[in-house]
Amino acid sequence: MDGMTTTAVPATSTAEVVGFDQVTKTYGTVRAVDGLSLRLHPGETVALLGPNGAGKSTTLDLLLGLKQPDAGTVSVFGTSPREAIVAGRVGAMLQSGGLMDDVTVAELVRLSCSLHPRPYKATDVMARAGIAQIADRKVNKLSGGQAQRVRFALATAGDSDLIILDEPTTGMDVSARQAFWSTMREQADQGRTVLFATHYLEEADAIADRVLVLHRGRLLADGTAAEIKARAGARRIAFDLEGAFDAAALRALPFLTGIDVSGQTVRIQSSDADATVHALYGLGVYPRNLEVAGLGLEQAFVAITEAEEAKQS
C-alpha cells in the first residue's frame, strides 16, 4: 500500500492550474521561498504542509500576486495571478485577510458575490459555508471559527476554478474542524482545484490527495499522504525485550530507517516491516507485546524535516 507511486494526477488533466518556476523570495537575508518549482493540476486537492516559517504564507502570497518574486515566474491558469483573480478564476481566504467592520455577515457575503464575475446566490454561499444562521450578526461579533467560515464564504462566493485556503480551520475546535472538512471536500467534489495550507497534519491526511511538504522555502516532499509516510519509514514496530540484548544487532536489522531503545522497550521505523520482523526473530530474541502500525503523517513529517535538518548541519 505504501509503495512509491506516481504523483496523483488525474489522467484527464492537460491544463496547468498553477505553475511556479524557480521562484525565490528573499526578506533581508532570509530566503522565505528558495528556488521553488511546482505544478498544480485541475481537480487536485493539495495540502501545503510545513512548520511555522517554512514559507507557506509567502508561497500563497506569491501565488495570489500579493507579493512579487525576486526571481522566477508564477503563473495561474497560464496568466499572471492578478489576471486570474480579475477573471474570477481564483477564490481565496488568507489568515491575514481581515473582514469589514460594522456590517453583517450577509452584507459582506453579498458584497463578495457582487464583486465576482460569476457569482452564486449569497444565500446559497452562506448555506454552504454553514453561516446561514449567523447571517444577521455583525462581523466584529464573531468567534474565531465563525470568522473563518465567513472568510471561506468570501472565497467561494462565485464559480472559481481554484480555491486557496490558508490555515482554514485555525480557531476551530475538533468537531468544528471536522465539520469544516466536509465543507472543503464539497468544493473538491465539484471539480475545483483546492490548495490549502495547514499545520494540522491530520487535515492533510483526511482531505488532500496530494501533499506538498515545505521546509525553509524549499519543497521537501511531494506526493500522496501515503507516499510521504512511506518516505519517512512506512511502519512503526514496537516491542519489549526481557533481560540483556544486543542493541547493535537490532540496529543492523534490514529496512530499518530509525530506532529508539529506551530501557527494555524498542521502537523501530521500517520501510519493510515484514522483512524487519522476520529478521528480528532470526536474532533469537523473544519480542513481547509486538506491535506493527502505520506511521502517522505527523511522525512522517517530523521524520522528514529532521532528516533535512541533519543534512543541513
Binding site: L64, V90, L94, G98, L154
Partner: peptide, 17 residues
C-alpha cells in the same frame, strides 16, 4: 489605516475589484 492593519484591504485585493 485601520483596514490596512486588519487585513481587509488585503482581502479585497483577492477580488476582481
Amino acid at each position: 489605516a485601520k483596514e490596512r492593519e486588519s487585513g481587509w484591504v488585503r482581502q479585497l485585493r483577492l477580488t476582481p475589484l
